[in-house]
């Protein structure tokens, strides 16, 4: 009985706090995406409009999000049967969108951001007994006009 409580508690806590954090995060992401919607952010190497450019600058956005126990156990069970690890999809999605938003916040006053690139890495990947987290790093070139 004690064993079961030992296993279930972190999973339950992970589910409760993980879902609350995810819900709040998505709310904040959607609000800020609306705010930055009109700032063109593209992966082209050249600006959409080459006129009137005064300067350009490297802008970066970086985020680390931790996996919760519930998601990890769910993904661990998926290892046995295979298939999409849906529990990690929201995690990666949140991290990617948050990183791009931070990059946009970094590019204050820019008229567009070009050459957007994303890098990803996982922290604690090999450490046994630790719970993993995902890092997404977004970088691009901000273009400023008169």
């Amino acid at each position: 009985m004690v064993d079961i409580i030992f296993i279930l508690t972190p999973i339950l806590l992970g589910y409760i706090f993980g879902s609350i954090a995810e819900k709040n995060h998505y709310k904040s992401i959607q609000e800020r995406e609306k705010k930055f919607m009109r700032l063109p952010t593209i992966s082209l190497k050249t600006p959409l409009n080459p006129d009137n450019i005064t300067r350009s600058r490297l802008v970066v956005g970086n985020v680390v999000i931790s996996v919760d126990y519930f998601k990890r156990v769910l993904a661990g069970l998926k290892n046995i049967f295979g298939g999409n690890v849906t529990s990690y999809e929201t995690l990666v999605d949140r991290a990617r969108r948050e990183a791009i938003l931070r990059l946009k916040e970094d590019a204050k006053g820019a008229s567009e951001i070009i050459n957007l690139k994303l890098e990803t890495s996982s922290i604690n990947k090999s450490a046994k007994g630790t719970i993993g987290s995902i890092e997404i790093f977004a970088y691009g070139t901000a273009i400023y006009r008169k």
Binding site: Y15, Y26, Q30, E33, K34, M37, R38, P40, I42, L48, F70, K71, V73, L74, L77, K78, I80, F81, N84, T86, S87, E89, T90, V92, D93, R97, E112
Partner: peptide
């Protein structure tokens, strides 16, 4: 450039985690 909000349903599968957990 046509401003557009990202589609929430493309990269995230809309699945019930509890149901998935129970099945597994």
């Amino acid at each position: 450039y046509i401003p557009k909000l990202p589609d929430d349903t493309v990269n995230v599968t809309n699945s019930n985690f509890i149901e998935e957990m129970l099945k597994l």
